[in-house]
Amino acid sequence: MSDTVFEPKILGFLCNWCSYRAADLAGIARIKYPANIRIIRVMCSGRVDPTFVLSAFAQGADGVMVAGCHPGECHYVDQNYKAMRRYAMLKQMLAQMGLEDNRLRLVWASAAEGQQLAEAIEKLVADVRELGPLNWPKSWEENGHRLEAIQNIAREHAEAMEVPQ
């Protein structure tokens, strides 16, 4: 990676049935996309707990992609609709925290859409690259009182989920 261009770190939560396979297909078809994304497999986009996304940002991710089957094509009937609702909520919440809209994206990619997924990844990487590094929650220190609020959120979630301290 060159020194001059900012290389964002992107985390992708891909559902096992459609999007993860779309990523497999992109590989099989040798479709190229930037190496910035690191993919985590979940069984369903409905499994993506909003805390996962917050946690990813908190630990240095500059962008996050959540990808699942197309609406109406979910392997688990309609759980991607739940992902869709959580995504809307997350967007609102992140906006309140001052996070740019372009850092989080929900993508639908069927197992046949390797090309589309690759394009979506490329687009997300380009958009986040334009935004620059997130460096969160470090950047919140400039905004002291809000930092505390954010840390509280993280603590509450962590307690609820028994994340090893």
Partner: peptide, 9 residues
């Protein structure tokens, strides 16, 4: 972001 690298919470 190594400076923010401790456990998440």
């Amino acid at each position: 972001a190594p400076e923010a690298k401790e456990e998440p919470a």
